[in-house]
Nucleic acid binder design. Structure first.
Length: 437
RNA sequence: GUGCCCAUGGUGUAAUGGUUAACACCGGAGUUUGUGGAACUCCUGAUACGAGUUCGAUCCUCGUUGGGCACCCCA
């Protein structure tokens, strides 16, 4: 009767198939094994921010969806196909943040940060969400660190500082071979002129360019500059140059940014084909790559119209964002080991219930003394405890047995040398401290 | 959104249209209950989910979910 065996009723608890939850597509757990890298990155980003006087800001994971639509632009991929809209009770129209600059601009307006001394320099570190097809270096939930400089007028030195902060952060993570590309995409006066010039030029060659570029010609002509299709290359090369087409103001600004970068000795290449996908950018845009990676580890640019677009007074701003997962990948690919905690510690070993009880309390004494301790309650065998002490790479084992409890003493064993000594319990803290030195 | 590849214990790999799905690492227990690193013994634990074809599916087909890569685009 094989058919009966296949019935839905569970034969035994063991045979019953169970539904398994999986993390959402493109969203990953950061497991303990990976945390050292993340800790390192968080630390370096915080140190960099503090040194350059960026103040920490955290904004909500979600915002009014219109905030992003207005800031990022309705015709961008991010808005057209990558936003996570949040379904909730009531009439809220929230979206998970696909990037953080818009939220920071919102916060700047909402909290009147323009009343602080300008410019306001802010940094953030947190998850962003985009509904994309996951692939190398791209996820649906991904972390960004960012440095933003708002207010203080249109000064090219802020462009340089925003770039500097990301660059130094990546350097601080020991990622060698950083390559920076810089460009200017003009302002709202000169960019439309250039766009028109570019479209007019490409319209003449519309039949010869690739299918993507045919589409781009209508939706986003600037992107054609970034096309990698070989069929388009000849046209790309002869296309009107963006740098020749921007106005004197933008051109002077770019020149100044480059001068500051030279002064800082930051290596860069001018890439007249570099364009960005978000509507709010103007003038300076940049991307930082690591040797061998074809995806930007960091990128950003100036956004002089963003705050105005969101209903604030016209205020200039410039910022950069670093893709943390990509940085982790780059570090691993380069064999940059996450630092071991390497803290000297003592492993408490007990024998018998009385000693177990005593050990529990002893941990608190070590805590007060600021000494790291480890234990393995639940493994009563001394041998197992010693094995774990060894595996945990503890420096010392503190062994407490029935005999020691009665004598009010403890054995301190040096796990490297194997030497051990019995000391009075009331002096155990200082003895351990001495040996951990 | 499109295309290609993939899914076997926690991890990395085997195997098969037909009884108990194998190995290594990891994990757990232990080798005469007071001492770690080695060795040995034993143990837990898997065919992602759902449907179809079939006498019979982990294997073949389809769908779902997830993973990988590329395009689009982007950090």
């Amino acid at each position: 009767m094989p058919k009966l065996i296949k019935s839905k009723e569970p034969q035994t608890a063991k045979k019953q198939k169970k539904f398994q939850f999986q993390s959402p597509k493109g969203m990953h757990d950061i497991l303990p094994a990976d945390q050292p890298w993340w800790d390192k990155i968080r630390k370096v980003s915080r140190d960099t921010a503090e040194f350059y006087n960026f103040l920490r800001i955290d904004t909500p994971m979600m915002e009014d969806q219109d905030l992003f639509t207005i800031a990022v632009g309705t015709d961008t991929d991010i808005i057209e196909k990558e936003m996570f809209y949040v379904k909730s009770r009531g009439k809220d129209r929230y979206a998970l943040r696909p990037e953080c600059t818009a939220a920071i601009a919102r916060s700047y307006i909402q909290h009147g940060l323009s009343h602080l001394s300008q410019p306001v320099k802010l940094y953030y570190f947190g998850p962003m969400f985009r509904h994309e097809q996951p692939q190398a270096g791209r996820f649906r939930q991904f972390y960004q660190a960012g440095f933003e400089i708002l207010g203080g007028g249109l000064d090219a030195i802020y462009d340089a500082q925003a770039i500097l902060a990301s660059y130094r952060m990546l350097e601080g993570l020991k990622i060698k071979g950083l390559l920076m590309q810089v460009n200017s995409i003009g302002c709202r006066i000169c960019r439309p002129h250039y766009k028109k010039k570019l479209s007019d030029y490409y319209k003449k060659h519309e039949k010869d360019v690739c299918a993507d570029c045919k589409r781009r010609l209508k939706t986003n002509p600037l992107r054609m500059l970034d096309c990698k299709n070989t069929a388009c290359l000849p046209f790309k090369e002869k296309s009107p140059s963006l740098l020749d087409s921007i106005c004197v103001g933008c051109s002077a600004h770019l020149k100044l940014v480059l001068e500051y970068l030279d002064e800082l000795a930051l290596p860069y290449v001018l890439n007249p084909h570099l364009v960005r996908g978000l509507d709010y950018y103007s003038k300076t845009v940049f991307e930082i790559f690591a040797d061998g990676n074809n995806q930007a580890l960091a990128s950003g640019g100036r956004y002089d119209y963003l705050i105005e677009m969101l209903g604030g007074r016209p205020t200039s701003g410039v910022g950069s964002a670093i893709g943390i997962e990509r940085v982790v990948e780059a570090m691993k690919a380069r064999g940059i080991a996450a630092p071991k905690t390497g803290k000297a510690s003592v492993f408490l070993v007990y024998i018998g219930d009385l000693a177990k009880k005593k050990t529990l309390a002893l941990i608190e004494d070590f805590r007060k003394a600021g000494i790291d301790v480890q234990e393995s309650f639940g493994k009563d065998l001394i041998k197992r405890q010693m094995q774990l002490a060894d595996k945990a790479e503890a420096n010392l084992a503190l062994i407490l047995g029935q005999k020691e409890v009665y004598e009010e003493s403890a054995i301190i064993r040096d796990l490297k040398s194997g030497a051990q000594e019995t000391v009075p319990l009331k002096r155990v803290i200082e003895e351990v401290k001495k040996r951990l030195k």
